[in-house]
């Protein structure tokens, strides 16, 4: 599979900090994958996200996106390829209205007016926010603002969409709706969109194609969910949750039930329980 992100020996220390926020990180991401980036607070997830978009410059090491080095020289090309949605709905809403906000990235790229109008309508329809185009942010819910933020990122037709805890400040309903929106987009765009989702929702991570686990600025491991989530004790030692299906397995095992040894998704567990009960 073609690699869209290649990180080699990446180290980053914030100015005036002795301890590096990221240390000697190396990993790759395949084009079109849905990647979950997990780790406790302060483990360096946001720092990594900002390095991918050249909002921060590596202290050492290199990042390639789509074979292009992420550096000062290529910053414009890189930002055309990477769209970001941050955590706080208010602090990333630049425009005075929904439409203005989506247009902001296009104005920066000097897109002609007619094309801009078309693009704004297209992406707002995609996230079901077109009817709110003239609304001001003060009259939108957090979930609606985050959908606008997705539209704003999509407007530049990026190949990579990074969500940095984008649902963390939403209520459960807003959270669910927003993730559905992103899943739908991903389904529509298929291999043309790579999603990197920084999340504390371990069940979301369990349904990703690839999971990256960070701890104190270091890569603990990366792999498919079944490679990562079977070692429940290790995850808990890192201060991470364990997917619900794995928690269930552990509890059943504690009661002396013979549970499957390999990793199971929620559906897999439901199927297994179903079979277990029918056998009795």
């Amino acid at each position: 599979m073609e690699k869209i992100i290649e990180i080699k020996n990446l180290t980053y220390a914030y100015p005036n900090q002795t301890k590096a926020a990221l240390q000697n990180l190396s990993l790759t991401v395949n084009r079109g994958a849905w990647v979950a980036l997990i780790g406790h607070n302060g483990s360096g997830k946001s720092t990594l996200a900002k390095l991918l978009n050249h909002l921060l410059t590596p202290s050492d090491g290199q990042i390639l996106i789509d074979q292009i080095p992420v550096d000062d020289e290529h910053v414009d090309v890189i930002r055309n390829r990477v769209g970001m949605v941050f955590q706080n709905p208010d602090n990333q809403f630049v425009g005075a209205t929904v439409a203005d906000d989506v247009a902001f990235g296009l104005e920066n790229r000097q897109m002609p007016h007619a094309q801009m109008q078309e693009r704004v309508q297209m992406v707002l329809e995609e996230v079901h926010m077109w009817e709110f185009a003239e609304r001001e942010p003060a009259h939108l819910s957090g979930g609606q603002k985050q959908r606008v933020a997705i539209a704003s990122a999509l407007a530049i037709e990026p190949q990579i969409l990074i969500l940095d805890e984008a649902t963390a400040m939403l209520d459960p309903k807003g959270r669910f709706e927003m993730m559905e929106e992103v899943r739908q987009l991903k389904a529509d765009l298929g291999p043309d969109l790579t999603v990197i989702s920084i999340t504390h929702d371990i069940d979301e991570a369990a349904s990703a194609d690839q999971v990256i686990v960070l701890n104190d600025g270091q890569l603990v491991e990366t792999g498919t969910p079944d490679e990562i989530f079977t070692d429940a004790q290790k995850l808990q030692a890192l201060g991470l949750d364990v997917p619900f299906a794995e928690q269930l397995k552990a509890k059943l095992a504690a009661r002396g039930v013979a549970v499957p040894t390999q990793y199971e998704t929620m559906e897999g567990m439901a199927e297994w329980i179903w079979q277990l009960i029918s056998k009795k």
């Binding site: 909002l55 920066n108 000097q110």
Partner: peptide, 23 residues
């Protein structure tokens, strides 16, 4: 907020030194 907004603006390609079109 200002720091985060600055990041969000930069991430969307704001440069400050180039002409922008108007929506």
């Amino acid at each position: 907020r200002a720091i985060e907004l600055g990041d969000a603006m930069e991430a969307r390609g704001y440069r400050g030194d180039v002409e922008r079109t108007k929506y």
